[in-house]
Amino acid sequence: MIKRIFSVLLCIAALLSFASCGTKYADNVSVDTLADKVVTALGSATVYVDDKSNLSNDYFKMPDTVTASVVRLAQNSTENLNEFGIYHVTNGKADEFEDVLEDYLEARYEQNASWYQDYIPNEAPKLRDAEVEVFGNYVVYAIFDRNSRDIVFDTVKENLKAN
């Protein structure tokens, strides 16, 4: 009898811990605020500017579920490929948009690899190894070296963790 009670209690405890294992993220943080935090965390070695060109429009049509976005890139973007984008996605479509961004980054690399390798070979791996992460309703991509990519994602994650 005791064994059965113990088993049931263990099951309940395991189920409860399983249900709570996902991190909760806030949904009301402005993408510009997040971008400012990321730029601060990255340090002052590179100046970042807002991308007003909507380069992504060359590759895909922005879904209606994206309600806010910001892209910041290195001011000297023809020599420094450092870039990140933060998107707020509604209706539970964040994972789907993650796929869109991954395809977008892959297409950018395929189209530009040849001349990047000729002229800015040290920068090409940043785009080749670009990553996309999802934090609740926020989807973030980062085109950086490994360390800076981690800074970008960690900064967004920390600033989105719900209290």
Binding site: S53, L55, D58, S77, T78, E79, W115, D118
Partner: peptide, 18 residues
Amino acid sequence: NNASNTRKLDSRLATQTF
């Protein structure tokens, strides 16, 4: 010219400095 002495035609071109 810009510092990398090359560029690519895309939507960002007009905003890039040289």
